[in-house]
Amino acid sequence: MEEAILIKKTLPKYSQFSNFHLTQIPPYLVYPSFDTKDVTNHLEEIYKIREYVIFNLTCSPALTHRENNIAARFNQLASEVIEDCMMISSPTQIALHPSYQEIIGMGKNIFPLLIKKLDETPIFWFWALEAIAGINPVPKSHRGNIPEIVKDWKKWANTNNYAG
């Protein structure tokens, strides 16, 4: 399949999924034959072609479409969490919300978006930040002090180039 067709037709279809990675492009999409035996015999060639396509696509403006989709999906999920959990005190209850679970599943891609959300609705996002970063940078002396916890996370994000 020609690269132009892949960018125009296939990438938008896959990039609507927030956790899409270019390496998930099925090999058969870059090789003209659908014959199983033929594909099996040319696997090495197929993977090389896919690598070439991915290399070119990483410079492609089609990626902007993907990044925009990630932000849009995150914002939609965050809105659902805020709407449903506005009056909930338990961070565990909030974290178990299906939309919250999906946010955690989006991984490091959305870390800058989470840091930005701390300015609006701080208490919701500490669990997700810790789950994604694998660390809790808040000292014991700041426990419960929401403005200080926000500062701790922002400082950590800046130091580790996660601020976006």
Partner: peptide
């Protein structure tokens, strides 16, 4: 403060 038996609260 925000009280809850789980850090960072």
């Amino acid at each position: 403060k925000w009280w809850w038996p789980k850090a960072p609260f």
